[in-house]
Amino acid sequence: MGTVVVLGEASQVSGYCLAGATVLAVEDAEAARKAWASLDSEVAVVLMSTRASGFLAAELADTSLLTAVMPS
């Protein structure tokens, strides 16, 4: 079974750890790209903030991962 990662600004994603998700708090484009590159093969779903999805537009266009963007 794969894991769920939640990626975005700490103020928006920190609570998801209570549901068992792996939380990757990022505040800028460089941190978002580093976090994305660190995802391992066990990741099945990535939920992200609107801002993080903007930082990762190129990466999201070329992925087979299931991704979703949180409403703002």
Rank of each mutant, 00 (worst) to 15 (best):
G2Q: 09
T3Q: 09
V4E: 07
V5D: 03
V5T: 08
G8C: 04
G8I: 02
A10F: 12
S11E: 11
S11G: 08
V13H: 07
S14T: 14
G15C: 15
G15K: 12
Y16S: 05
L18G: 09
L18F: 12
G20A: 14
A21D: 08
T22P: 11
L24R: 15
L24W: 06
L24A: 13
A25L: 13
A25F: 11
A25Y: 08
A25T: 07
V26I: 14
V26W: 07
V26C: 14
D28T: 13
D28I: 12
D28Y: 12
A31D: 08
A31S: 10
R33Q: 06
R33H: 05
K34D: 07
K34R: 11
A35D: 04
A37H: 02
L39P: 02
L39W: 00
D40I: 00
S41F: 02
S41T: 10
E42P: 02
E42T: 14
V43A: 04
A44R: 15
A44E: 14
V45M: 04
V45P: 01
V46Q: 01
L47G: 07
L47W: 04
S49D: 03
R51Y: 06
A52T: 08
A52Y: 08
A52F: 10
S53R: 15
L56D: 06
L56K: 05
E59P: 01
L60P: 06
L60M: 06
A61V: 02
A61L: 05
T63S: 02
T63L: 01
L65G: 01
L66R: 02
T67R: 01
V69S: 01
M70K: 03
M70L: 13
P71G: 12
